[in-house]
Amino acid sequence: MTRLFSIVAALLLASSPLAVRAQEAGARTPQADEHGGMDHGAMDHSQMDMSGMDISGQDMKGMDHSDHAMSASTVSDEPGDAPPPPVPSDFPAERFFAPDRMAASRAAMVKEMKFSTFALQVDQLELRTGKGGDRIGWEGQAWYGGDIDRIVLASEGEGIFGERAERIELNAYWRHALDPWFNLQLGMRRDFRPDPQRTYALVGIEGLAPYWFELQGQLLVSNKGDLHARGKAGYTQRITQSLVVEPEAEVDFAFQDVPALNVGAGFERLEMGVRLRYERNRSLAPYVGINWERKLGGTADLARAAGDGVSGVSAVFGVRAMF
């Protein structure tokens, strides 16, 4: 068998006029020159199951390669089911280098591949111009950590230029990855404005939902015992590579009246915005947009009773930054 294969192969090699093989035609003829030194006799064919192989087809003209790969592999080339060896616990490099240096080197490699870093992402830093005068608004976060666990400092707020801010919220939470898309938030929120100031315990879920919607839901319990919820949704639509439109909505809900904060039970506040940004540069992207904010339900009633407006539309101009 082995002998016959060698002879046939040698004949074919010697008679081969082609130096190369044309892939498209599927023809393939080994080059005689290149095989001059090849000793087929020395090849161990004893372990190869050639029973299904047509020796005359060794020139493989017109052979469909991918097909053959499949059939050859499944018939004669199926690996056995020997058990794997045990996982060793030794380090052979320690036979050549000081074990303490190797141990330090192993630790250094693992540490180096453990990603931990700082990032600052300012989603909104903007001027809001509307009937009520010019305001400044912001939303952003800084974080430190790795893929699974991060410490996040997030803030959002709004205020009139040159006056006391109306709303300043600072969140500090542990962000823990739950699955490939969603994270758990566990921490605190401190509202420096409005007065009186409140501190909340915070538990939330944030992440990327099917169809690329960015969602966030939080439950907040204040140091006075009142319970609130906040929901957020956003979507990023690229118009071109650099022009991006991002609609967003944020809604607050109170589970009870909180007279001190002029909040009535039920939906408190809805904020919706659309921002069109020019993101030629990811680290600093200017945008324009519209922001609409409205107090709702009992909270709106309280505002009306106090003679305050309940809704406002503003044009916004700002920058999004990523460092």
Binding site: P92, A93, R95, F96, F97, A98, R101, M102, A104, S105, R106, A107, A108, M109, V110
Partner: peptide, 13 residues
């Protein structure tokens, strides 16, 4: 392997 040059695997760097 000890000449393969991978710190933490084959040598200390």
């Amino acid at each position: 392997f000890q000449m393969d040059g991978v710190p933490g695997v084959s040598f200390p760097g």
